[in-house]
Design a protein around this nucleic acid. Structure first.
Lengths: 355, 355
DNA sequence: TGACATAATGCAAACGGTTGTAATTCAACC
DNA sequence: GGTTGAATTACAACCGTTTGCATTATGTCA
């Protein structure tokens, strides 16, 4: 039923009575080949169930027809929603999507320099990755175009990127709670990740902060409070590792102080879920006793009926990869930074405070 | 700072004063090269920041060093949890992971024959894909090894696969509800997907059912009820498209009949969330008025405190890719079907029925 | 010390495409 | 009918590795 080896361009050439070069041109719909022979070749290719050997084409053209996507844990719903947008575009293109999950610090150190190579990919999409100073060296020296989605470092404006205005988002989210009548508003966010890399201690000094979205959202929070004349209390601030459980414990503590907040703004939906859990454990009902608001609007937010500030996750992936494909074809052009809008989605975890 | 082109094996050879062949052997830690020269070559390679050109290596060896993963919507939490397991293994190997999202029927028709090619991948992992009869033709003719994770079709025992015993899972899940004292137990599951492919109507006749996990879990449900002497009522059965909203509507209807169930077994966690939502909307409190139990134990299940039957999603990905790597190296061997265990996880959405 | 086994390296073909350039065909025109 | 230029096609090098085989260097033993 099947031949020993898959058909090559030479097999087709022999049958068609032409040379491999002509077959190649015919297959790539070059105008340099007569319509008649092109059809003949195409027909033979079809019959032979021919499909071009990617490795050979890659070697020959110097293009890889692959784009690399670097993500941290892609089980995070926000990350996988972004990936979904990337896939939606890429599955209709000739590009392969190769995934690199750089989660552990060990992978990370060899990660970027290993991935950003023209022998491997034509372009890279870096999604929601915390970036340390020494990474930037590799980015600057990258031979392939890079697009950042949810860029975590303000120093990287030299690259294309898709971001949101986290400060504004945090500001508007907090404003909504204030408008509801809350004045005791807690904030629970995630800490700057400390990647332990002893050999770069010095470099780290230059860039001591790895800016996270959480931090920016907190800035917006403070701005909103200030404008409303509400003092900012350290008692109403909780910071820990990213995650459901961590946020739960932080909220648990915050809700047990003497004068607990009547509303909590969590830096992400996942963390908001932790807050909800803690509140329930303390017998508080939501939203009557405590308003909770998140950020992202991941799928589960709808399930939990969580009020949250939506960001266009899917869209960010779509736009990001479009930018990248463009950067791959155009040689030189200006770098583009697209800021996607956010939107408040009101569900059932927020209400005016009890009087 | 950087050379015009990335260093090749020839550059190294020239500097080291040897031939490319020797460099190749040195780099691949062949024993055929003297320790001394090997070290010298390695050092030069390091200095030149050499990294092998994958395309060339692929063309030369005939191996692609890539494995293809075919998934439907990978935003589904259960799918992405499985993928996570795959990645955990692959990121420590020399294999690239290329993702193919075959969701729409259009992509599907060209999908498998396009993907399962030795020029593209060394092996394929097919995860949670509904399979129609005509797909099987491509699987049987595949030149690359295939491993199914969460295989959806009983005809595919000729391939390696990682599955769970859905009948048993459904059985035990239902048994738990019975043990709690429930006798009015509803089931909400998802329907056999109808892939509209007019040209294959005839073939479809031969295999009219596309078996889904949901169906098997329902079998287990029926078995448990029968053994307990509980009659099976069509009023307590709901079937619709997979999804949160669909399940919510089904549950909404089921809970409004004259003698509604006191417990509902949903075929997946996502669907269980829909049931919970419907119950809340009807003013029923959980678990007092209604017990709800799911299946899968996705991350959100913990957040929702959902009682559910856990399957080892991450593990399925891990084991699946291990099987595949093995199949790629061993030429011939028996096909392996691994059945992973399930486990009841009791949280807060189940309780004895009110008396 | 010469013969011989063995270790180390060189040589060159192959993998399957692409593409610049040369060669051929063909039609049109004078 | 020969000339010319455009349209086709052939030719051959090249992309960067790997690998079987030939060759040379090294060491062993009688």
């Amino acid at each position: 039923m099947s031949n020993k080896h898959t058909a090559t361009i030479r097999d087709i050439a022999q049958i068609a009575g032409v040379t491999p070069g002509t077959v190649s041109r015919a297959l790539n719909s070059s105008t340099l080949v007569k319509e008649e022979t092109k059809l003949r070749i195409l027909k033979i290719a079809e019959e032979l169930d021919y499909s071009p050997n990617l490795a050979a084409r890659r070697l020959s053209t110097g293009k890889t027809f692959a784009i690399g996507v670097v993500v941290p844990f892609f089980t995070r719903p926000s990350v996988s929603a972004r990936l979904d947008g990337v896939v939606s575009i890429l599955s209709n293109s000739q590009y392969d999507l190769v995934i690199h999950d750089i989660a552990s610090p060990k992978q990370r150190s060899i990660g970027f320099q290993d991935v950003l190579r023209p022998e491997r990919i034509d372009g890279a999409l870096i999604i929601s990755m915390p970036i340390v100073h020494e990474d930037i060296y590799y980015f600057n020296n990258s031979k392939v175009p890079i697009v950042f989605i949810d860029r975590k470092n303000p120093d990287l404006t030299d690259f294309d990127s898709i971001i949101i205005d986290d400060v504004l988002g945090g500001y508007e989210t907090t404003q909504y709670l204030i408008k509801l009548g809350h004045r005791k508003i807690g904030f629970i966010g995630d800490i700057t990740e400390e990647l332990t890399k002893p050999e770069t201690d010095i470099k780290k000094q230059e860039n001591p902060f790895m800016f996270t979205s959480s931090r920016d959202r907190y800035k917006g929070y403070k701005k909103a409070l200030s404008e409303a004349g509400i003092p900012i209390s350290p008692d109403y601030y909780g910071e820990g590792q990213y995650g459901y459980r961590e946020a739960r414990e932080l909220a648990f503590q915050m809700l047990r102080i003497d004068d607990p907040p009547t509303a909590i703004f969590a830096a992400s939906d996942i963390q908001a879920f932790g807050v909800i859990r803690a509140a329930r454990r303390l017998g508080l009902s939501i939203p009557e006793d405590l308003s909770v608001i998140g950020f992202d609007d991941i799928q589960a937010a709808e399930l939990m009926e969580l009020t949250t500030t939506r960001q266009l996750l899917f869209e960010s992936g779509r736009k990001g990869v479009e930018l990248l494909l463009q950067a791959i074809s155009d040689d030189h052009k200006e770098h583009i930074n697209i800021t996607l809008p956010t939107e408040l989605i009101i569900r059932n975890t927020t209400a005016p405070p009890k009087v």
